[in-house]
Design a protein around this nucleic acid. Structure first.
Ligand SMILES: [Zn+2]
Ligand SMILES: [Zn+2]
Ligand SMILES: [Zn+2]
Ligand SMILES: [Zn+2]
Lengths: 132, 132
DNA sequence: GCTTGACCCTGTAGCGGCTACAGGGTGCAG
DNA sequence: CTGCACCCTGTAGCCGCTACAGGGTCAAGC
């Protein structure tokens, strides 16, 4: 009844058309049926699956982890330990990145704070990049 | 006198050999003279330049920005406004990434906090990825 | 002087996660 | 029936490396 074109799906989910095709190639989305004219024809199930992928991407999960999450999500009766482990790994990764970026921010702010807007020869930023 | 092999330079700067060659190809490092056996022969100037590149990379500057910083660093008498602008852009970029990651961290922590370690069907993590 | 093994060389391909074409086909409105 | 938006496949590019493959160089130890 309510078949969606790839463009419709893109508009509804906020995922670009090219990215949807990419996810299909990568095995994250099933190959949808086609119309007579060879257009992809999506249903609500596809939209739900793509939304799941998008929310996972927005949390920074990699495509491998998302494939695993999608598989795990299908075993309703199974315990969710593996899901939680993936989420904890992702949290650890995010925290590592935040730590790295926070150190970069501190150094950049300090450099900028010490710069007297003088010549390059006296610039604290260049000085520190040169190693004092 | 004190010519360094690429491996020596790698050990002294902490930049892998392959990456040094990559930086040379990308125009960040000048092509060094060669020995009779066609080995790269580096001097202290090369080491200083590579250290500059490494410190810049550690702050997250992209290779284009580093090329610009290296050029600017050579104009000792010129004002450092362009340098500062590059540093401010980089700080803004880092802050943007921190903001994104902080949002991811909050959501991941909240998901994990609500998960009762039950079945997948009841798992808060899967539930939220599905969109409630 | 000959072998071993660490190092070096070039060139190319792969990673992740897209993004951007090129070169065509489809479908609907005016 | 013509224009235009959309769709199709396939391939190449982005960033900053990283990892080969297939060779050459060089010094130490026997
Ligand atoms: Zn300070
Ligand atoms: Zn300055
Ligand atoms: Zn909550
Ligand atoms: Zn759970």
């Amino acid at each position: 009844m309510s078949a969606l074109s790839i463009g419709d799906l893109a508009r509804r989910t906020g995922v670009p058309v090219e990215t949807i095709r990419y996810y299909e190639r990568m095995g994250l989305l099933p190959k949808p049926p086609r119309t007579e004219g060879n257009y992809r024809a999506y249903e609500a199930t596809h939209e739900r699956r793509l939304a799941f992928v998008k929310r996972s991407r927005d949390l920074g999960f990699g495509l491998d982890a998302i494939r695993a999450l999608l598989d795990l999500a299908n075993g309703a009766d199974r315990p969710c330990g593996e899901v939680d482990a993936l989420a904890r790994d992702q949290l650890a990764e995010v925290e590592r990145k935040i730590a790295d970026l926070t150190a970069m921010r501190a150094e950049l702010q300090d450099m900028l704070g010490h710069c007297r807007n003088d010549t390059v020869a006296d610039c604290e930023i260049i000085g520190r990049l040169r190693g004092k």
